[in-house]
Design a protein around this nucleic acid. Structure first.
Lengths: 129, 129
DNA sequence: CTTGACGTACGAAATGCTTCGTAGTAGTCT
DNA sequence: AGACTACTACGAAGCATTTCGTACGTCAAG
């Protein structure tokens, strides 16, 4: 009985690719490769191989009906982000949401607008709960 | 010109060990090993090797004056937490503090008390800024 | 039909992480 | 001293990650 939610945590390189797929939507290897050239140059086949591995792991889905296969993230950005946040929250912060948010704020130096946004977020969250 | 702040991101196994050092303070290999037995059983020499590697990387400091060397985390818990939070914030959330906190809340299902605590946190943060 | 462009598949090297066994050293007890 | 025990050091295996080269297939010009 395996939950379909169970996906391996994406590695660093895989996360870079997911970021492209999230922002571009379904893409060919070439498109992903080009999108990454500025931030993280790599050979075309490197990206290809990574996408193949990610497809095996279930991190992306592949449409093979076209000659150039089309890849898309198998989970929406928010879902994966939640997994990663929850994972780090447990592993590094012992489950303390307080320390977690404090860490984020300290790392980010949030602006006044962002702080306001966060308050609104807390309100909404408390409502919906 | 290398900043002394530059430390590699601890791996999963290393983070487990750091957690022990943070909560126990300076410890021998044996103490770390025993503390981990419940959560993550491993041979004694596995922990020893990890601590040796972590010392090389600068993640821990080693006091060799005793026969049983004594290890301590080279950075306080909060410092490392901030690094990790900032790292994930950049890599997975594109720097958006909003998505980051939302991810944490969604992953955690924070209690009413925690939410109140977080509001207080935002207030304090805005003050001190 | 041959060539070139463009695509996938795959093997494999380099590196990093994790684990553990073995060897050797130093102190302790009888 | 000899046997035991508690350490550290180190090599190496097994696995994952990352990177890339090479082989091979397909399609469209020329």
């Amino acid at each position: 009985m395996s939950k379909p939610q169970d996906l391996p945590r994406p590695t660093d390189a895989e996360l870079d690719i997911l970021a492209v797929l999230w922002s571009r939507g379904s893409s060919t290897v070439r498109e992903v490769h080009e999108a990454l050239q500025t931030r993280k140059p790599a050979q075309y086949t490197t990206i290809l191989k990574l996408l193949q591995i990610m497809a095996e792991k279930g991190l992306v889905r592949r449409d093979e009906t076209q000659r150039a296969h089309v890849y898309q993230a198998s989970r929406p950005r928010e879902w994966t982000q939640r997994q990663l946040a929850g994972d780090l929250l447990q592993r590094a912060f012992g489950g303390s949401a307080r320390a977690f948010v404090l860490g984020a704020l300290a790392a980010k130096r949030a602006t006044k607008e962002e702080l306001a946004e966060l308050r609104r977020l807390l309100d909404e969250y408390e409502e919906g709960k």
